[in-house]
């Protein structure tokens, strides 16, 4: 079998995504020579079977750990199997898979430790509700203030990381709402980041995990854990 020049893992944390996961996995398998890993975060529907029959390696978590806990399982898998790079995308079809080479390029070229897809760069044209835009602005300033990274899309879950970050995240990664937190973790590690323009779509199936009360909790929790991570000791 032909080995691609780089060992790349495409990782998809999935919770109750039976409607979309199969399609995404088969599209990824057709389009890219990379391994596809689905981390089934304790779904009670057919997510696991759909992903497996579409040709993904599937890790079934025995209970729901939250998106960060599931993503970390993928980092552990990539670390143990010696992958050089990992691309993380959503299992609900929000992320345009044709943009994977864009997030991967800075990693494979050795230009950054992490490349994060941004829906606000370029002519991607993303529109969100007012509270969501407000939240994104808030986190932008927070990230910029504490890390110096210039980011446009701090809550993006579409990114690629290299071996160094795979190993670091295997040890330190928040259980829930990890995206903003990840910036302070990267800053503490001294990682180089790059943002690249990607396309993101409104959800096709299912509901966003964030409700009104949830949004307030999200802001408070993320800000708190961000600030704590700024002063935490990493062993």
């Amino acid at each position: 079998m032909d080995r691609p020049p780089h060992r790349v893992l495409i990782a998809i944390p999935a919770f109750q995504e039976e409607q979309t996961i199969g399609q995404i996995v088969s599209a990824l398998r057709r389009r890219f020579p990379y391994d596809v890993l689905v981390v089934n975060d304790g779904s009670t529907d057919a997510t696991s079977a759909a992903a497996r029959s579409a040709g993904a390696t599937v890790l079934d978590l025995p209970c729901n750990l939250g998106i960060g806990g599931a993503a970390q399982t993928a980092f552990l898998f990539a670390r143990d199997r010696g992958y050089e790079a990992l691309v993380r995308i959503d299992g609900d079809g929000q992320h345009e898979i044709e943009d994977i080479p864009r997030v991967l390029e800075p990693i494979l070229a050795g230009k950054a430790d992490a490349a994060i897809g941004s829906r606000f760069l370029g002519e991607a044209g993303y529109r969100g509700s007012i509270p969501r835009i407000f939240g994104i602005r808030f986190f932008r300033s927070l990230v910029n203030l504490f890390t110096g990274y210039r980011v446009t899309d701090p809550t993006s879950g579409f990114f690629a990381i290299n071996r160094r970050l795979i190993e670091f995240y295997s040890r330190h990664y928040p259980s829930d709402y990890p995206e903003v937190d990840a910036y302070i973790l990267m800053h503490r590690l001294g990682a180089g980041t790059a943002e690249v323009p990607v396309r993101m779509y409104a959800r096709v199936e299912g509901k966003s995990s964030i409700t009104t009360f949830g949004a307030i909790y999200y802001m408070v929790k993320v800000t708190l854990s961000f600030l704590i991570n700024a002063i935490r000791r990493f062993g």
Binding site: L59, D60, L61, P62, G69, L76, S175
Partner: peptide
């Protein structure tokens, strides 16, 4: 518990 669940998923695979 989180570590255990992650290890279990990896081992099952």
């Amino acid at each position: 518990n989180k570590r255990m669940a992650q290890e279990l998923a990896l081992l099952k695979e």
